[in-house]
């Protein structure tokens, strides 16, 4: 029988089940004869146990719905890469304060491909809604009582002719509006409220090179967006209304915005 010399390398192999079975006895003897190596081995065993214990709970956690949905072939809810979005820290803080939808934007990474333009639009729109619709006294910069000035100001800043839609037929009154950054450009946010205090917002930018439309829902109970992108402008209507009601409001807003643009 050939007896080879063992080294620290064999401690790792033994620990990881990579030491050939027929060397095991000789290895154990070597370990017994080298207290320092034996202590090293015992320490690595303890560290490994601690490593496993630290992550053991993860296997018992319920699998998040957003991950299951991908496998089932449903549209995933995207989280937002950090760094490219001005509002991320504020939005994250707002969500923590609101609770329940925390984690929606909490990605700290740049994974995969850039989001398409429509995702960026709705994510910005939803973030703005989450922050400002929750504000009672400072929800808007310019109130609805100053509507003419609001429209002129936002039109000039955003770079398209913006007419605030009349959504009274859907039960919503204009609260006012504010100017926001949107990627490289600017966005107008118009906030509306019904008599129960439920708020929706319109988010309009003059930046778009593609045509798209759709709805975008967050996980759990976050607001949803109905959006359109067309040549030269894009719009998202955001709120926590039932889908059918939000779509009805959005249709009305859309046709009025289009008419306003053309006026």
């Amino acid at each position: 029988m050939t007896r080879r010399d063992f080294s620290e390398r064999d401690i790792h192999m033994a620990l990881d089940g990579e030491l050939p079975v027929d060397e095991r006895v000789a290895y154990d003897a070597w370990l017994d004869a080298n207290p320092e190596m034996k202590a090293r081995s015992a320490r690595y065993v303890a560290d490994r146990a601690a490593l496993r214990a630290a992550f053991a709970g993860v296997l018992d956690e319920p699998v998040p719905a957003r991950l299951q949905k991908i496998v089932f072939g449903e549209a995933p809810v995207k989280t937002v890469p950090l760094g490219s979005r001005w509002w991320l820290p504020a939005a994250a803080a707002a969500m923590l304060a609101i609770g329940g939808v925390g984690g929606y934007f909490a990605g700290i990474d740049h994974l995969g491909l850039e989001d398409p333009a429509e995702d960026q639009l709705v994510e910005q729109a939803i973030a703005a809604h989450v922050i400002y619709a929750a504000e009672q006294r400072h929800a808007v910069e310019v109130p609805a009582s100053d509507k003419d000035h609001l429209q002129t100001w936002l039109s000039n800043r955003v770079g398209l002719k913006l007419v605030a839609p009349d959504l009274a037929a859907q039960g919503f009154q204009l609260v006012g509006g504010r100017l926001l950054p949107a990627g490289e450009s600017k966005a107008a946010m118009l906030l509306y409220e019904d008599d129960k205090g439920e708020r929706i917002s319109l988010f309009v930018t003059a930046e778009s090179a593609e045509k798209a439309k759709g709805t975008y829902g967050s996980e759990e109970n976050g607001p949803e967006a109905v959006y359109w992108l067309d040549k030269g402008y894009s719009c998202a209507v955001v709120g926590s209304l039932p889908r059918a009601q939000l779509t009805a409001v959005a249709k009305s807003a859309y046709s009025q915005l289009l008419a306003g643009l053309a006026s």
Binding site: L51, F55, V58, L59, E61, V63, P64, R66, L67, Q68, I70, V71, P76, T79, G103, A106, G107, I108, D109, L111, G112
Partner: peptide
């Protein structure tokens, strides 16, 4: 395999949501 992927991601990325984002990208791919 999702529970195992989540555990691995969590050990790589610490932040729970970032880890799940990694798993999500993995599943999409």
């Amino acid at each position: 395999e999702i529970p195992r992927l989540r555990r691995y991601a969590r050990s790589l990325l610490r932040d729970r949501d970032s880890a799940d984002d990694l798993v999500q990208d993995c599943l999409e791919r």
